[in-house]
Design a binder for these strands. Structure first.
Length: 883
RNA sequence: GCCGGAGUGGCGGAAUUGGUAUACGCGCACGACUCAAAAUCGUGUCUCGCAAGGGAUGAGGGUUCGAGUCCCUCCUCCGGCACCA
């Protein structure tokens, strides 16, 4: 008897499929289309993960079933090739990221082909291919033209040690992932995409698609639409004294004559005279840090007038802005004598209503711009309310509680009284404005009215800070109208920061011209190719490494022809994956045609998109956003890109942990294929547990599916020696095969691959034991197994004498009437099964009752009991209810 | 805290959605074949009990002829959002 040689079988059929371009999707077919999509991999140096295998095999099973059902199937794959790991690896090893990407994707392709996945390889895409990103850039320009791409100052994560801006995922616990330095916020001009303009549609159109409810909930949460009411509170025009009582230790200022006469005098003239010499001396002997700080503060770029070595009370502060009551101190070793006083003086200054911030010498010397940013941020917070016309807009869902408002709270990193007061428009009461940690900037207007009597959070806050609690009457609609309560809808979703100061991404196709401003690169000049660079490291000031290539950066303005500069930021990793499902459709060997409407109309929407749970929020939202913009440009048909979305669960290592190189628990698919074969690996991953759930890898369990395939192989060999021509159909096997067709078909649709495989195993077990199995049933079994184990079934199909592929055999139908209910009925007494009876016909209720009561075991149980009623469940059980 | 999901043998997990709990697979034990081993085949494998029978689906209660499944209270674990005004 022949042995099951998986290597030979798999190599043979993979060769045949490739040669015949077996799995190519036909753009011109009349068959109904099916577009199955899986998340294309990031070609990392680690190679294919067994988690990829799970996802891709799952959709492969579905794609193969669809083909057998007569569909024209598009099941494509490609490489999400731009991204940080490759760039970082390139920096570390001095290689060109293109070379790294080529090497990695070659490896991935080899691995995927070894799995026998039915991808249409002729449509393979690579987001880092200039032909591909030409259209990523083109789409960006459409955003720009519609005003959906704009530049704004945004804080970024700045690593002061590596001197680069970090992506959010590179920041772990507020620290740089690689060097561990504390990450600082830094303002930088960034390209933004106005996704918030689509927030409403992104939320609403979830009704149009078939996604699991959990994913819809996640998307809605992320968008964070909240409907409520906005009320304007006027800010009290005359600032009030600071809250903690004033001037306790204050020698004279605050109401003293000095303040009236000289706005800048903040101390008793006597003290001033005593300390003045000292201030002069300090200015002479100032430290480098102080000098740097002063140069920065005096040039007025912060829109605030600062004084140096100024006397407040009995203390000399380094710098002060009197209008904003902001004191800046630079601590150094030279003025040690001051340190002793530090605590006392800070206390004093705070009581006087000053905010005191301190910087260390090194901070000022090494990074004055970061210091400046921090100061600017604080000034912004201090001047809250100015420039708003003295109005603060609060957000509430319960405007009727306005009479109970005892304070207004705005976003703050810590709880702090701002020193300002607001007027409650309903009763003209003056209530304090606080900064509160619990008020979030992304919700509503970022400001609330505190109603401690009606809201537990407000109450907590009021108690903590000694604010009053009122049991107040409710305000009716008339009052709402009078005070201008207006309904508003707000979103938690922010606009999408689209710039990265990196190398390995799509260059943003924009040119900056001194005369014309921001000018888009003309469409015919696309792609703006990523130039080759010697050093991929970002520059010291946080600009992209592209900024260092003068020959690339300096261009003529496309509008006026004058000297201009290219934008040096690149796009984030999300860009290429936001439209890749379109690229497969409009793909031509060397280019793409996004205007190929006929093709887009033919293939869209994606019928079924499977991917990881980790991408169900951002990637899905981003690509839906892009799709909607393209829809508005009349480029794509339909509002939504993906008709149906499912998510597979993670594969964890045997120890229940995440697979990772550092833990040393990574399973390499190559090794499993070598040892057991691709069919075994596919089948194991389908069988290991529920597809949507996380499961641990158990190497010792693989042997089970391998044994199953061997059993199938042996049975095929056994049939060759049998005379199967004169077989009379066996009732039981006939029922079994019909049931198997039914269950496997339904389970594949529901992605319950594990139970589908289990049913196939049951079927094979029966076949192996049976005297004979009719050829048709055996063929049906092979067709059902083919999506899971395409190589072996193709081989066995051929040994039956078929000239054409098993992949072309139609998916079998089943006959419900042929399925028997196991032929056994349970007899229960008061719901407990006491006996079983075999019946020929499952329908005859009267006969079954008779049989049940005749059963000796049941008779025994019924001695001395009265039967109240009997419940018969067709084909399953009969329940005898006694007393 | 809220939202979503889940708790079933030694292990991965089934259960037609209210109808014979523990399918299928791993592991384990015994047997057959073999000089022997591997492979294969067969039998057994929730638990207490010699048996008759009893008990068991995280814990407790409820609805029902009947509950792993539905309802209430509680506990634990995983995932997401993290003070949602």
């Amino acid at each position: 008897m022949k042995q099951y040689n998986h290597r030979a079988v798999e190599r043979k059929w993979q060769g045949v499929w490739e040669k015949k371009k077996f799995y190519g999707a036909a753009d011109k077919s009349k068959k109904p289309k099916f577009y199955g999509l899986v998340e294309f991999p990031y070609p990392s140096g680690e190679g294919l993960h067994v988690g990829h295998v799970r996802s891709y095999t799952g959709m492969d099973v579905i794609a193969r079933k669809r083909r057998a059902e007569g569909h024209n199937v598009l099941y494509p794959i490609g490489w999400d090739a731009f991204g940080l790991p490759t760039e970082n690896y390139a920096i570390k090893t001095g290689q060109d990221p293109r070379a790294v990407t080529k090497k990695n994707s070659d490896n991935f392709r080899r691995q995927l082909k070894a799995l026998g996945l039915s991808f249409d390889w002729s449509r393979e895409i690579n987001t880092s291919d200039p032909n591909y990103y030409r259209f990523t850039q083109w789409i960006f320009l459409q955003f720009f033209k519609r005003g959906l791409a704009y530049k704004a100052k945004v804080p970024i994560n700045w690593c002061p040690k590596d001197k680069i801006g970090l992506a959010n995922e590179e920041v772990v616990d507020g620290k740089c992932e690689r060097c561990g330095a504390a990450v600082e916020p830094r303002e930088k001009e960034q390209w933004m995409l106005a996704i918030t303009k689509y927030a409403d549609r992104l939320a609403k159109d979830l009704d149009l698609v078939n996604y699991p409810e959990s994913i819809k909930v996640q998307q809605r949460n992320w968008i964070g639409r909240s409907e409520g009411w906005e009320i304007e509170f006027k800010i009290n025009p005359t600032p009030n004294p600071s809250p903690k009582g004033r001037g306790i230790n204050s020698p004279s200022f605050g109401g003293g004559e000095g303040e009236v006469a000289f706005g800048y005098q903040t101390t008793d003239p006597k003290i001033w005279r005593a300390l003045q010499d000292k201030t002069l001396e300090m200015r002479k002997n100032s430290t480098e840090a102080e000098n740097v700080m002063w140069q920065m503060l005096r040039n007025n770029s912060l829109d605030c007038h600062f004084r140096r070595q100024h006397i407040i009370g009995k203390f000399i502060v380094d710098f002060v802005c009197l209008e904003k009551k902001l004191v800046i101190e630079v601590d150094g070793d030279i003025h040690d004598y001051q340190k002793e006083e530090d605590r006392e003086r800070t206390e004093f200054l705070e009581i006087e209503g000053y905010k005191v911030i301190r910087f260390r010498n090194e901070e000022a010397v090494q990074n004055i711009s970061s210091v400046k940013n921090k100061i600017a941020e604080i000034l912004k917070a201090l001047s809250f309310g100015e420039g708003l016309g003295g109005v603060i807009k609060i957000f509430t869902t319960r405007p009727e509680t306005i009479y109970g408002a005892t304070f207004v709270a705005i976003t703050g990193k810590t709880d702090r009284f701002t020193g300002e007061y607001a007027i409650n428009p309903a009763n003209q009461e003056k209530i304090p404005i606080w900064e509160a940690e619990y008020v979030m900037k992304d919700v509503g207007t970022g400001a609330i009215m505190g109603v401690p009597a009606r809201d537990t959070h407000d109450l907590e806050f009021a108690k903590k800070h000694g604010l009053p609690v009122k049991e107040a009457p409710m305000a009716d609609q008339k009052i709402w109208t009078k005070i201008g309560v207006k309904p508003i809808t707000t979103y938690k979703l922010r606009d999408w920061v689209f710039s990265r100061q990196r190398y390995w991404g799509e260059p943003i196709p924009i040119i900056h011209c001194a005369k014309c401003g921001i000018v888009p690169v003309p469409e015919e000049d696309l792609p703006v190719k990523l130039p080759k660079v010697k050093n991929y490291k970002p520059t010291d000031n946080g600009d992209s490494p592209l900024a260092n290539i003068a020959s690339w950066v300096n261009v003529a303005c496309p509008r006026c022809g004058d000297k201009a500069k290219r934008e040096t930021d690149v796009m984030p990793n999300w860009a290429g994956s936001s439209w890749y499902y379109l690229a497969y459709v409009v793909h031509k060997p060397k280019s793409y045609d996004l205007k190929a409407k006929r093709l887009l109309k033919k293939w869209l929407p994606v019928d079924w998109y499977n991917g990881g749970m980790e991408h169900t929020t951002l990637h899905l939202l981003y690509s839906r956003f892009w799709h909607k913009v393209l829809y508005d440009l009349k480029l794509v048909p339909g509002q939504e890109p993906y008709q149906k979305r499912t998510a597979h669960g993670f594969i964890l290592a045997a120890d229940g942990e995440k697979m990772s190189k550092s833990r040393g628990n990574v399973v390499n698919p190559d090794e499993v294929i070598k040892l057991y074969g691709a069919d075994t690996l596919r089948l194991y991953e389908m069988f290991m547990g529920p597809f949507g759930q996380a499961v641990s890898w158990q190497t010792e369990s693989i042997i089970g599916v391998r044994r199953f395939l061997e059993k199938v192989f042996r049975y095929s060999e056994k049939r060759k020696t049998q005379n199967v021509k004169q077989v009379t159909p066996n009732q039981k096997l006939n029922s079994l095969i019909n049931e198997t067709v039914k269950k496997v078909s339904a389970d594949i649709e529901a992605m319950k691959f594990n139970t589908a495989v289990s049913q196939l195993m049951i079927c094979a077990n029966h076949f192996a034991k049976a005297e004979t199995v009719v050829k048709k049933d055996w063929e049906t079994f092979l067709i059902l197994l083919a999506p899971f184990a395409p190589h072996l079934t193709e081989e066995l199909w051929a040994t039956l004498g078929h000239r054409s592929s098993i992949q072309l055999a139609p998916w079998p139908a089943y006959d419900e009437r042929q399925i028997q209910a196991g032929g056994v009925i349970a007899v229960q007494i008061n719901g407990k099964t006491r006996a079983t009876i075999g019946v020929v016909e499952k329908g005859a209720e009267g006969r079954i009752k008779e049989l049940a009561l005749e059963n000796p075991v049941i008779k025994k149980w019924l001695i001395g009991k009265t039967i109240n009623k009997m419940i018969y469940v067709k084909g399953r059980l009969i329940n005898i209810v006694v007393e």
